[in-house]
């Protein structure tokens, strides 16, 4: 590891923590209905939305209508994205004349964007019209993120309310998340990103003449268009000199801003934020990385404010950082250490003034090792899934870090809203375990945690694990799935495990090397994304309703304090133990074996 690299990681973490309090306090004010500095501008818009949609903002509901609203808006969003993809050939803002997307790919993408996963089996610039990107994908980036925040706010009210039937009005929380939080921040970031060179245009793709023509090998074809084969049946290739390249354009800056802030992660272009039109400079890279964790981190403070004990929010943030920081340093160290096989060949992998050193395969030279490792760790700690380097090219241990962060349930920051409500489920389990140890009914934030809450929390914890492990197991036994693997063997297993870990935890990043745009993966990953989003939201809201109806328990000498280092340690151990016990066997078959093979003598 280089000192300069560590300094950059430290700068990032300090900037993030400094922004937690101001943004967290602002969001707490927004969700408690207090007047904020944005009210003069956005208040009339908010009231107009309620009037037009017939919503009475003062009317609250119990958890069932709240959950129904969240599910309905997501289902309608998915249907809209599906229809846009299927009909894009007939719709405007399609200068490249891109055809309709296939039904299975449209299903996968619709579910992916409605669930805040943003797994992409398609290549954006070759598949989606500008209209589909803007009206379908970018809109879902806002709505799916707002749904996650709304569910968290409802759960928070479950802790704060006493003997109440209601947990809030979904439409109000949903509107305020979008209008007061996501839209202003996205607007600001989009302007800065476009100033840095991120494209924002409706112009058709441009042809550019290459400064230096390149020769590539392409398959040779017969007169009837079929591939030419040699005597052994292998495809014949021929040289082709390329003198021009196509530069894809589009309204990218506006979509990139919300894809980062909303922990969505779906790139406008195929290679996501490794593309120079999506992430052109070190400054745009820093801001995009900051945007990944900004809202999930600040929501910890919002939670503390809303439960009238900010120490609770800081404790949850501390638990996230305790897991995040060692894994970040671990990924950086693994990538900076490089490939031992290259050392044997005499390749210089040492960092110097002339090169970043380490494992630079699949990484952008303008970002280097530290910022690639930082992005990979942040994007998988949060359920973002955007990438600025190819995780498939990471060293085995460097690739294990993002995979395991997803498998921990996307609770280390996690998605906007969903990360914190996931961590709160672990907190429920942690106080339950502590209660078992001392023989006392567990409590959290003054509410007794009883059998119903523990059952629901167990569902929240177990559903993603089942989606990941069952999906992976089915895939490795299905020929239609294994033929998509470009690297058979241990690494191929890692590619499949990564894909289901990503979909089954609503992350959306890809390990690459897996041709996932096939009917099998489009359906299997689509199902994994659906269940790991909505089958978690429902029990979380059910817990919110159950907690809100309870009376507050007085704090006594026997109450376990949940803002102390002891509880942070207990929470971290609970998260890590569940993650380790569930996924260590699978990881041992993938990245751990690959690491041993890489460093073994044979």
């Amino acid at each position: 590891m280089t000192g300069q690299g560590l300094l950059q990681l430290a700068l990032y973490v300090v900037a993030l923590v400094l922004l937690v309090k101001p943004l967290g306090a602002y969001m707490a004010a927004v969700f408690q209905g207090e007047r904020t500095f944005m009210a003069p501008l956005l208040g009339p818009v908010e009231r107009l939305i309620y009037r037009l949609s017939g919503v009475d903002p003062a009317r609250e509901s119990d958890w069932k209508p709240y959950a129904f609203g969240a599910l309905l808006v997501n289902l309608l969003g998915a249907l809209a994205v599906y229809a846009l993809q299927r009909l894009q050939g007939f719709l405007p803002l399609n200068p490249q004349g891109l055809a309709a997307v296939s039904p299975d790919s449209s299903f996968n993408t619709a579910v992916s964007f409605a669930t805040n996963t943003n797994w992409q089996g398609y290549a954006g610039e070759a598949t989606m019209s500008y209209l589909t990107q803007m009206l379908g994908l970018a809109v879902q980036n806002f709505l799916s993120a707002a749904s996650g925040i709304a569910v968290l706010i409802a759960l928070t009210r479950g802790f704060t309310r006493r003997e109440a039937g209601q947990i809030g009005n979904f439409w109000v929380d949903f509107t305020r998340s979008t209008l007061y939080v996501l839209l202003p921040l996205s607007f600001l970031l989009a302007v800065v990103l476009s100033a840095q060179g991120v494209v924002q245009s409706f112009a058709p793709y441009q042809q550019a003449t290459l400064v230096e023509p390149v020769v590539i090998q392409v398959p040779a074809t017969n007169a009837d268009g079929t591939p030419q084969l040699d005597a052994s049946g292998a495809a014949v290739t021929k040289d082709q000199t390329v003198t021009e390249q196509t530069l894809p354009l589009g309204p990218a800056a506006s979509q990139v801003a919300i894809k980062q802030l909303g922990t969505n992660g779906g790139g406008f272009f195929n290679v996501n934020s490794a593309h120079p039109f999506e992430n052109p400079t070190p400054l745009s890279n820093f801001l995009e990385m900051l945007a990944i964790l900004l809202i999930p981190a600040a929501l910890c403070y919002t939670f503390g404010s809303m439960v009238n004990d900010r120490r609770q929010g800081w404790a949850l943030l501390a638990a996230m950082l305790v897991i995040f920081l060692p894994l970040l340093v671990g990924a950086f160290a693994a990538e900076q250490a490089g490939n031992p096989r290259f050392e044997a060949l005499g390749v210089d992998q040492a960092a110097s003034a002339m090169q970043p050193g380490g494992n630079m395969e699949g990484k952008e030279t303008r970002f280097g090792i530290a910022n690639s490792a930082l992005w990979a760790t942040a994007t998988t700690a949060a359920s973002n899934g955007s990438v600025n380097a190819m995780h498939d090219s990471f060293t085995p241990l460097g690739g294990l870090v993002p995979m395991w962060l997803m498998q921990l349930g996307e609770v280390v920051f996690g998605g906007v809203g969903s990360g914190l409500y996931g961590m709160l489920m672990f907190a429920v389990i942690a106080v339950f375990i502590a209660g078992l140890m001392v023989g006392r009914t567990p409590e959290y934030l003054g509410k007794k945690i009883e059998a119903y809450e523990v059952k629901m929390a167990a569902v929240v914890l177990l559903v993603p694990c089942v989606a990941v492990l069952l999906g992976t197991a089915v895939a490795v036994m299905t020929p239609a799935a294994t033929t998509s693997v470009a690297n058979p063997g241990v690494h191929g297993f890692s590619e499949i495990l990564y894909a289901f870990s990503s979909a089954g935890n609503n992350n959306g990043s890809a390990f690459a090397g897996l041709s996932a745009n096939t009917p099998f993966y489009n359906f299997a990953l689509g199902i994994a994304m659906w269940v790991s989003r909505y089958w978690l939201m429902i029990p979380v809201l059910a817990i919110a309703g159950s907690l809100a109806a309870k009376r507050a328990t007085a704090v006594t000498a026997g109450t376990l304090p949940t803002h102390t280092p002891l509880f942070v340690t207990l929470l971290v151990i609970t998260v890590l133990l569940v993650g380790a016990l569930t996924f260590l066997p699978a990881l041992a078959l993938g990245p751990i074996v690959e690491h041993l093979q890489l460093h073994g003598s044979h």
């Binding site: 289902l75 039904p103 089958w535």
Partner: peptide, 30 residues
């Protein structure tokens, strides 16, 4: 393929609704 998409979506909606009802019923029993 459109039919398959429809069937899978309906199955997911049905299963999600079943979980919703189960959560509600379990709460009634607690």
């Amino acid at each position: 393929m459109e039919i398959l998409v429809l069937l899978v979506t309906l199955a997911l909606c049905g299963a999600t609704w079943a979980l919703f009802r189960l959560c509600d019923r379990l709460r009634g029993q607690s």
